[in-house]
């Protein structure tokens, strides 16, 4: 378990360093995810080794957003008089984005004949 966490942290660290050094518009952990994917392709045995720890972390991904969420409550006043328009914008745009995203995905998949494997 400690070794698995170490692997994940090493990739996060590598992602942070590369992202900052090259001024990439990607956060370190997202770049770390891409780097780990490449590593898994090169060394497939690594996947079996870290799979359980990874799944344990991801099964409670929601929990990890709670501290940031609590921080938001204290800043809700920042929305100020724009609170209602902003809430309307967020709700509508999120619904529209999901609808457009899902329809586009399915339409292009049908057009290109890409099947689920």
């Amino acid at each position: 378990m400690i070794r698995h966490i170490t692997v994940l942290l090493c990739f996060q660290l590598a992602g942070e360093v590369i992202s900052r050094a090259l001024h990439l518009p990607l956060p370190g952990p997202v770049l770390g995810m891409a780097l780990l994917l490449v590593a898994l392709l090169v060394v497939p045995q690594l996947a079996e080794a870290i799979r359980k720890t990874g799944q344990a972390l991801l099964s409670h991904l929601s929990l990890l957003f709670v501290p940031a969420g609590v921080g938001v409550v204290g800043h809700l006043d920042k929305l100020g008089t724009d609170g209602l328009p902003l809430m309307a914008a967020i709700l509508t745009s999120t619904v529209l984005s999901i609808i457009v995203g899902v329809w586009t995905f399915l339409a292009v998949a049908r057009l290109t004949g890409s099947r689920d494997v």
């Binding site: 994940l8 891409a34 780990l36 991904l61 990890l64």
Partner: peptide
């Protein structure tokens, strides 16, 4: 833990 969990997203992606 958000950091390492984000890195761990590579695992389901790989699978």
């Amino acid at each position: 833990i958000l950091g390492p969990a984000t890195v761990a997203l590579a695992i389901p992606l790989y699978v």
